[in-house]
Write a protein that binds this DNA or RNA. Structure first.
Lengths: 183, 183
DNA sequence: CTAATTTGCGACATCGGTGTCTCATCATAC
DNA sequence: GTATGATGAGACACCGATGTCGCAAATTAG
């Protein structure tokens, strides 16, 4: 095979990141293969999207493993873990931003389930941070989680429109998320 | 006419808010009219979307007028104006949330131009707030604006999923935007 | 070189959404 | 009542995207 399944997924991800409604024909072209070959690897558009979704969730889970989430973190490392999560999420969103609004993520049962599990782990961390006084406790944890979601969408939009430089993103998100916009 | 153009737009807006990719047939059904009648009022889907876009921008501009934006606000009223803007934007987003991601808003020249003008006014306010020390000055104003955009998307998502109560939204957004999630 | 495999190309049927049209029906105004 | 105008139902053609297929060319393995 001239083009591996993994290469297809990578190229498709890149293309969908700046053209989320692309057709199979567009995706095939961006990968550099024919429509037929693309269909040989992924029978339907749905199948392709689900495969991309799993890959995005792999990256998300990779973030969790890398920062040691789910290992009942001691109080000392809570803040450190939270910051690492934010940084890693930004990076993941830059690569898999399209998945943030891909509707296959809400259609496919398995994807939904897995995404909920990952989200639950983050909410657990947020709750722990609230109990430890690191994060304010007068917000529902789910709102804090959704806030991060919104900021990642703001990142995607900022990059797409060229509003801010890529290298500034981590600082902007971290500061905005943690301290807000007030001086 | 049993159903006025305005009623159609209102119902269509409601339906698109929880089903942003709805077809003309679905929209007609949600309005309670036939597909033919819908097409009599709006020849094409594009025309309908543009009309909805103008309405959303009318609401947005209405927010600006109500809080007196663009009248070279004195320093004293800057903070007050900013807070009013945030509150009003939340309310507008609850009604016209679908417009935040409707691609007609990026396709139609006139809509783009008008949206840019409105955005520019807000960025002006943000800049003024930064100069007055109300908002931190180490963020590009456009990022602050995009942050608000992201938070409004978080609101839309939170309401769609039923994560938080509608009445809590203003406090959550205001506090998150201004002070962040840290205690 | 040869055989097996993979690919690209083009044709094809299918499907759903769109936009147009006709005609019968219904409400309203006069 | 009659006339006017809006509506709903249904049929139709059109379009773009999807998914399938066969075949020839190219690549790879042996």
């Amino acid at each position: 095979m001239a083009v591996s399944r993994d290469q297809i997924l990578t190229k498709a991800t890149e293309h969908l990141n700046h053209s989320p409604a692309a057709s199979m024909a567009e995706i095939a072209q961006s990968v550099g293969i024919s429509r037929a070959t693309l269909h040989r690897h992924f029978a339907t558009r749905e199948a392709l999207m689900v495969a991309l979704g799993w890959r995005a969730l792999d990256a998300w889970q990779g973030v969790h493993e890398r920062i040691g989430l789910g290992e009942t973190p001691a109080g000392e490392r809570l803040e450190e873990t939270l910051h690492a999560l934010l940084i890693a999420q930004i990076e993941a969103a830059e690569n898999y931003g399209f998945a943030l609004t891909e509707q296959a993520m809400e259609t496919d049962r398995a994807l939904v389930t897995r995404a909920e599990e990952l989200e639950a782990k983050e909410i657990e961390l947020i709750s722990a941070c609230q109990r430890a006084g690191i994060l304010r406790a007068d917000f529902p944890p789910i709102w804090v989680s959704n806030t991060l979601y919104g900021l990642l969408l703001a990142v995607r939009e900022s990059l797409r429109r060229g509003d801010v430089a890529r290298r500034d993103i981590p600082r902007l998100v971290l500061e905005t998320f943690l301290r807000g916009t007030t001086s």
